[in-house]
Every structure is written in C-alpha cells, then in structure tokens.
C-alpha cells in the first residue's frame, strides 16, 4: 500500500479534495462550453503565482494566484459578455500575454528551470498538511458557492434568454462561475500546476458525459474518475521510481490516466451518437424507454 507512506497519503488527500470540487465544477465548465476560458484562466494565474512566489515565497504563491485568478475572472467575463463566447481571439490574447509575463518574471530567477517546472506542473509529492488544510477551506468555499447558484447557473447555461427573462442577471452569473473556476485553479495550482488543472476540470466531465446524460451522475462519475486516476497515477509513479528507477511526475501520470479513461469511454459515446443519428435518419420518434439507446445515451 503506497498510502502508508506519509507523503503519498498527503498527495492522495490533496487529490481527493480536488476530485470533490473538480467533479461538480467540471460539469458546469463542460455544459457551459467554458473549456477554453478555463484554459485561459489557468494560464493567466501563472504570472500571479510567480509574483506571489517572488514576493512571499511558497506562502505568497496562493495569494498571488488568488489575485490573478479573480482579476482574470472579471476580465474574461467582460470580454465574453452578451453570450458571445465566440470572442476566442481576445481570450487568446489575454492568455498568451499573461503567460508571457509569467515566463519573463520567472526567467529572472537563478533557479529558473526548477521553479518553472513546479509552477507549471506542480509538486504533488511535497504537499504539506498546511496546504491540505488550505485546499480544504477553498474546496468548502467553492462547493458552497456552487450550491448557492447551481439552479440559476443551470438555467443560464441551458437557456440564457429565458433565464434573463425570468429576471436572472446573466453577467453576474457568468462572473460567479468564472470566479468559481478561478478558485479551483488556485486550489489546485501548487499540487498539479497551472497547466494540468485544466485537465482535472475538463476531462472527467467530458468522459462522464460519454456514459450518462444526468447532471448529478456526471458530477459523481467525474469525481470518482479523478479519485481512481489519482490513486492509479500515484501508484504508477511510485512503482516506476522505486522499482524501476524511472522518474515520473505523479501529476502527469494522473492526467494521463484521465485521458486514458476518456479514450476508453469514447466508443460508448460514439455508439450512442450513431444510434441517435440513425434514429433521426429513419425519421422515427426517439427510442422507447429502456432501449439500449436510453441506457448509453
């Protein structure tokens, strides 16, 4: 059992907390088609992380990430205002500009390579109890924020015009969700780095969608997938380094396992798409309840 090793147990605890938030938040990111926006967020948090680290060391890192994350959430909400998520170009400009600033800042450090690596890919195996406690607090805040606004967010995601007609302010709901995503990035940044966070947010929900069309089930399956991939990734990186002397970044192993899960589930999703389109081609009404299609789709 790798979890009897204290630092492995801490890594798993951190991953479990991240699984708890990334499963449900990922469902909204996926349904809202915010993958690119979240990707942008993970990149724009990077200079904040660097500045925070330069100013206050490892402890300053979270503060820097928090400020940069919240700032980006506001900017991206303004940029994509009015439901125009097609504003890819401006999002991409913000993303690359912020990322470059981060790289410029970090390249002034003498420990350039090792710092850059840890900011980008995290240090899962050196997670401290204090970090776990901080992640737990952030996780609680994120889940409460999500629970408060889950219904309006769902309504706005599905039918923005009707949600606005019902009196919901879409701008504030968009900002709310972007802030939630920013907080997820902040919570995950030290353990898995700015680049790999996006994998935890997007892949589990996308994979879950392949086997279910129920929102709650998607959230649960997403969380379970991260837990499984988390344990599997830790085990693989442990075995690789202890038994075979191959150094393997644990966070990358976790992400690769998530990708593998997605690829394995892909045929199931294809199957339901093919069934659906063959149904519509024949012009028949949707399959009756309990049909194979209903089970997969």
């Amino acid at each position: 059992m790798i979890l009897t090793v204290p630092f492995m147990a801490r890594a798993m605890a951190e991953l479990a907390l991240l699984a708890l938030i990334c499963g449900p938040v990922g469902v909204f990111v996926f349904a809202r088609r915010l993958s690119f926006v979240s990707d942008a967020l993970t990149h724009t948090v990077f200079p904040g992380v660097v500045i925070g680290f330069l100013a206050g060391g490892v402890e300053g890192l979270v503060v820097g990430a928090l400020v940069a994350g919240l700032l980006t959430a506001v900017v991206l909400t303004l940029l994509t205002r009015g439901g125009a998520l097609s504003d890819d170009a401006s999002t991409a400009v913000v993303l690359t500009a912020m990322f470059s600033i981060g790289v410029v800042l970090v390249s002034r450090q003498s420990s350039y390579t090792s710092d850059l690596t840890s900011f980008l890919f995290g240090r899962l195996l050196t997670v401290t109890p204090r970090q776990i406690a901080e992640t737990a607090v952030l996780a609680a805040v994120i889940l409460v924020m999500l629970a408060i606004a889950a219904r309006p967010l769902l309504f706005r995601t599905f039918d923005p015009a009707a949600a606005a007609a019902a009196g919901y302010r879409t701008f504030w709901l968009d900002l709310w969700l972007n802030v939630i995503v920013a907080l997820v990035v902040v919570a995950a940044v030290r353990a898995v780095g700015t680049i790999l966070v996006v994998a935890l947010l997007i892949i589990p929900a996308a994979a879950a969608r392949l086997i279910t069309a129920r929102l709650a089930a998607m959230a649960v399956i997403g969380t379970v997938l991260i837990l499984l991939a988390g344990y599997g990734g830790l085990w693989i990186s442990w075995t690789a380094s202890v038994d075979y002397g191959i150094s393997l970044t644990s966070a990358s192993a976790v992400v690769l396992l998530l990708v593998l899960a997605y690829l394995l589930l892909l045929p199931l999703g294809r199957l339901s798409t093919v069934r659906r389109s063959s149904l519509s081609h024949r012009g028949t009404p949707p399959a009756p309840k309990g049909s194979p299609h209903e089970l997969v789709g």
Partner: peptide, 26 residues
C-alpha cells in the same frame, strides 16, 4: 431551435426551471 439538444437535462428538469424563482437560490 436556439437550445442545445445535447444538453444533459430531462423534460421535468427543464419544466422545474420555471419554478426556480419561486424556490429561491439554494
């Protein structure tokens, strides 16, 4: 036609959205 047919919600969940304002946020 403006709505995404791939969106994972049931008919009942869609109708319940009409009650959201009465139910309140949480």
């Amino acid at each position: 036609g403006d709505l995404d047919p791939d969106f994972p919600v049931t008919a009942a969940q869609v109708v319940l959205m009409g009650r959201y304002r009465r139910i309140g946020w949480w």
